[in-house]
Simulated assay, not measured.
Amino acid sequence: MPVLKPKLYYVYDPMCSWCWGYKPVWNQIKQAVTDDVEIIYVLGGLAPDTDEPMPEMMQAQIASHWKKIENFLGSKFNYEFWTDNTPRRATYPACRAIVAARAQDAEQAMLDAIQVAYYTQAKNPSDNSVLVALAKNIGLDIPQFETDLLALKTHQALLTEIRFARSIGGSSFPSLFVVREGKQVEIPVDYKDAEVTIELIRSVI
Rank of each mutant, 00 (worst) to 15 (best):
T34A: 11
A106Y: 06
K68I: 01
A60Q: 15
E80H: 12
E38F: 04
Q108W: 08
G74N: 02
I98V: 15
R102N: 13
Y22L: 00
E70F: 00
V25M: 01
I98M: 14
M110N: 10
G21Q: 08
Q31W: 07
Y22K: 00
D105M: 12
G74S: 02
Y79M: 12
V42E: 12
K23V: 07
T86E: 14
E56L: 10
Y92H: 15
R96F: 12
A101Q: 03
E107K: 10
C95I: 06
V33A: 09
F72A: 11
D84T: 07
P55A: 08
Q104D: 14
A101I: 01
I40L: 14
V25T: 03
T91W: 06
A101D: 04
V99T: 03
D49N: 08
V42L: 13
E56D: 09
Q31K: 13
A101E: 02
K23N: 15
M57F: 07
E70W: 00
I62A: 09
E80D: 15
E107H: 07
D51Y: 05
F72V: 04
M58D: 12
I69D: 00
D105H: 12
E70Q: 10
A101Y: 01
Q31T: 13
A101R: 01
Y22F: 11
L43D: 14
A94P: 07
Y79F: 15
W82V: 04
M58C: 11
W66S: 06
V25S: 00
D36Y: 05
R102G: 14
R96T: 13
A100P: 07
P55Y: 07
A103R: 15
A47K: 12
P53Y: 12
K30R: 12
Q108I: 14
K30C: 05
C95P: 10
A90M: 05
K68P: 01
G45A: 12
P24Q: 06
N71W: 02
K68F: 02
M54Q: 13
S64W: 01
N85I: 03
V25D: 00
S75N: 14
A90P: 07
K68Y: 05
R96A: 09
K68V: 01
N71V: 03
V25P: 00
Q31A: 13
T91K: 14
D84F: 04
T83H: 14
P93F: 14
R96K: 13
P93T: 11
D51N: 12
D51S: 15
A90Q: 13
T86A: 09
C95H: 09
D36V: 03
P48L: 14
D36G: 05
T91Q: 13
K30A: 15
M58S: 10
